[in-house]
Design a protein around this nucleic acid. Structure first.
Lengths: 157, 157
DNA sequence: ATGTCTGCAAAGCTTTTGCACTGAT
DNA sequence: ATCAGTGCAAAAGCTTTGCAGACAT
């Protein structure tokens, strides 16, 4: 999981960013980055914390919270807030642009791609005074499995 | 603020929904709906609670939380989670489709319209097994004011 | 009369903060 | 030798829950 070359590149990006900002290169920062780039799905802070513990890294929750913000700022990680649950994150480097379909019943998240979103972003860029950094398109609905379950139960809950 | 005809229609929608689901028609539910449809901007639960208090309604926070979920379910209200702050809501009936530009520095939210988003949703509908109910497109960046402020300060903070 | 809905306060969760210590520069 | 960064635990939000009483049906 996670190709070696990508990991080398993202470490370099983090290193450059830290130096440019005058931040320190702590082992915790690289450990968190390493762990995130070994994961392929969306994750929350608690899950990342547990995974790191299990993999023998000793990093506190506070440090994860601090550094995941930093990783978002330098574009290596993206934060999502699907539904009203806690924040979920995913790695952002060399991941082809994609958006999300979210089942409002079971919480399942599916990714999809549509290049036309770029045109919308470009228009927004032209028409606004914003310097655009990133976007999130979430489409909410009911997935096939949930629809089947609902149809099995004739009584409206 | 808020036209009378719209308010009549949304009350009817709520009434129909409550009856269809077998829920009760409490004065609190209509008071919350009334208050929301008198507001034109995004709001959080605390602000709504304060406004209702100031306007002489006696409704608890718990009741607002319960019923704002209900109003989301019946499509009269939409929940947003811009950035990592708390949930913001807005009325959803007879509001032309729009999306959001969010300044990641000051939190300012600007609305914009782009009909092409509908084509993307339609494709997603065709290509997935989801029954789509709604969507959110958030574009993040730095607004003009914040950019000016940043440029005034030559030192990277 | 029945059982849902409300209000209040307490509890629950995620995230942030304060502070003493560690370690990168 | 500094002082940013870390870890821990406490604190701080926002939101949910439990329970007794109110009220829509």
């Amino acid at each position: 999981m996670g190709c070696t070359e990508t990991k080398t590149v993202v470490k370099q990006i983090l290193s450059d960013y830290l130096q440019r900002k005058g931040y320190r290169e702590t082992p915790e920062r690289y450990a968190i980055l390493q762990e995130i780039y070994s994961t392929d799905s969306h994750f929350d802070v608690e899950t990342l914390y547990i995974h790191m513990k299990n993999n023998g890294y000793q990093v506190s929750r506070a440090t994860i919270y601090n550094n995941i913000d930093l990783l978002c700022e330098c574009g290596l990680v993206i934060r999502h807030q699907f539904g009203k649950k806690n924040s979920l994150y995913e790695k952002a480097y060399e991941c082809k642009q994609h958006d999300h379909l979210i089942c409002t019943r079971c919480g399942k998240v599916t990714e999809f791609c549509d290049p036309r979103i770029q045109e919308i972003i470009n228009s927004a860029k032209r028409n606004s005074n914003f310097t655009i950094s990133h976007h999130s398109l979430y489409i909410y609905g009911i997935c096939a499995e949930c629809r089947n379950e609902i149809e099995k139960v004739p009584i409206t809950l």
